[in-house]
Amino acid sequence: MKFLAARRRNPLVAIGLLLFALIAVGGGYAAIANVQPAQASVGSQTQVEEGKRLYLAGCSSCHGMEAQGTETGPTLIGVGAAAVNFQVATGRMPLAAPGAQAVPKDPTYTEEQIAALAAYVASLAPGPAIPTAEDLDFSDADVAQGGVLFRTNCAQCHQAAGQGGALTQGKYAPNLMGSTPQQIWEAMATGPQSMPVFSTATLPAGDKQAIMAYITNLQTASSPGGLDLGRLGPVTEGLFLFTAVFAALIAAAIWIGMKAR
């Protein structure tokens, strides 16, 4: 104590106290203000560095050297690890070709590389995190409630049976028959491309799990009523009637009217 007491008037003490106060206030504010639901796990330092290296090589030409965004690509600050994982793991990014919207393809990066990219983008600013196994566990979810929520929030674009549908000017809502629970969660949490964000406050985790349960049910459901014809409703059913059934009726009429030999 004698050591500290002797130096309490040292000019460096003021600077030290100021630094301490700043860190305490800033850290405290960050802890309180952090109401964002899902926090990105920032990942190890080496992972972030690896991610930055991959980012500069593969993404920065469109999204900017500092991920600040350019004319050709939006900013990635605050989009979170979930957005990176969704876009890169489904092959939407890197973009195959400019167009109305990014099209899924085989992923360009390995799982470790995607995790590194996600860690780097998550280190820039807080954003939706990659969902945990607990988030994605929908074993207790109510499929019927999931159907209600899906028809209220999702069916307008993805169609009541999750078959996808058209938007404006070449954009489209994709078919969900191949979507994994993780992709469904990440899409709702981050709002990729034209899709709006369905936040944790307005669509809580339990509701998201119910929606996952409903989509999984659609994916695995057979069609006990007969041929589903793509589950598009009157469009394909009408087309089937107009082509196959009309052709059969015309063939029958020709046979009936043909002169017997």
Binding site: V35, T152, N153, G191, P196, V197, F198, S199, A201, T202
Partner: peptide, 10 residues
């Protein structure tokens, strides 16, 4: 604050 930019609620 429940509704992020880009969010949609019916």
């Amino acid at each position: 604050e429940d509704l992020p930019v880009g969010g949609l609620v019916s």
